[in-house]
């Protein structure tokens, strides 16, 4: 098989796309994990208004397809503003140019919008998973920590978040891999990520077979690498001896966590 279809320019184009895909996946994965934990904690809150608004947030962003969210944020939201204001806010915004100087990526508003939409979509799923993970934490541990005088902050940062995430992590990994695959949807709002650069390469060379199979191989490798990375994080999160496995009392377990 000859590789003459893979010219230096297209290699550069594809690598730039790959670079943006990796950046987009990394940044939005972290953001949606953080947002998911925040919304999930609101969902568990005793305050009724917080709880209901978190539930509404979750249901809205889970039940609307990611693609609709992306197009909505990228193309529809700017139409809310009159033309001159739109230019200033979305396209000539110095904040948007700041991103370029930091990451070396040229990030037009459409790319940002795709990132926002993907973050909203995935964070809704992660919030539910985090809530389920917190549900598996034994009430004894929480009570014991409270008895030891742990503040809300200590309880959250030492027990609820690490253990909740650890328990739900297999499901969270599945969702994050799905999220990585969803970044291809950003191509539909002209984000120059890998799928988009594949399409550009095809339209320049009319070599659909080669580029599509190459893209398929790249995405398969990317998803298995991402799965490996997430498995590693999962092991890291669950590396502390769990008091369910090691035979110590909940009080001792909480003491270890709170007082360490």
């Amino acid at each position: 098989m000859s590789l003459e279809w893979l010219s230096p320019e297209t290699i550069k184009l594809l690598l730039e796309g790959l670079y943006l895909t990796i950046w987009l996946t990394a940044v939005t994965s972290v953001l949606s994990l953080v947002l998911g934990v925040v919304v999930g904690s609101f969902r568990l809150s005793k305050n009724r208004i917080l709880r209901w608004s978190a539930a509404a947030y979750i249901e809205i962003h889970r039940n609307i397809p990611a693609l609709v969210l992306i197009i909505f944020w990228a193309f529809a939201v700017p139409q809310l503003f009159p033309a001159d204001l739109r230019r200033v806010i979305f396209f000539d915004n110095p904040l948007i140019f700041q991103i370029e100087t930091v990451t070396g990526l040229s990030v037009p508003y459409y790319t940002l919008a795709a990132g926002i939409a993907l973050t909203l979509n995935t964070s809704a799923y992660l919030a539910e998973l985090y809530r389920a993970g917190v549900g598996t934490i034994s009430q004894n541990i929480v009570d014991a920590a409270r008895t030891l005088g742990a503040s809300n902050w200590i309880l959250m940062s030492r027990i609820l978040i690490p253990r909740g995430l650890g328990a739900a992590f297999p499901a969270i990994s599945t969702r994050l891999i799905h999220h990585m695959k969803n970044t291809t949807l950003a191509a539909l709002v002209a984000t120059p990520e890998f799928f988009h650069s594949t399409q550009t390469a095809i339209s320049r060379s009319f070599r659909a077979v080669e580029y599509l199979l190459l893209a398929a191989a790249v995405y398969l490798v990317l998803s298995s690498l991402y799965a490996k990375l997430l498995r590693w994080i999962e092991d890291y999160l669950n590396r502390r001896p769990s008091f369910n496995r090691v035979q110590i009392t909940p009080l001792e377990g909480a003491q270890n966590l709170v007082l360490e």
Binding site: K181, N182, T184, L185, A187, F195, A208, V209, L212, L213, A215, A216, Y219, L220, S223, S224
Partner: peptide, 18 residues
């Protein structure tokens, strides 16, 4: 592994074009 690892949009295009 293959059909779960590929983005649906890519799968659709591959089947449509190839």
């Amino acid at each position: 592994d293959i059909f779960r690892g590929l983005p649906l949009i890519l799968l659709v295009i591959i089947i449509y074009q190839l």
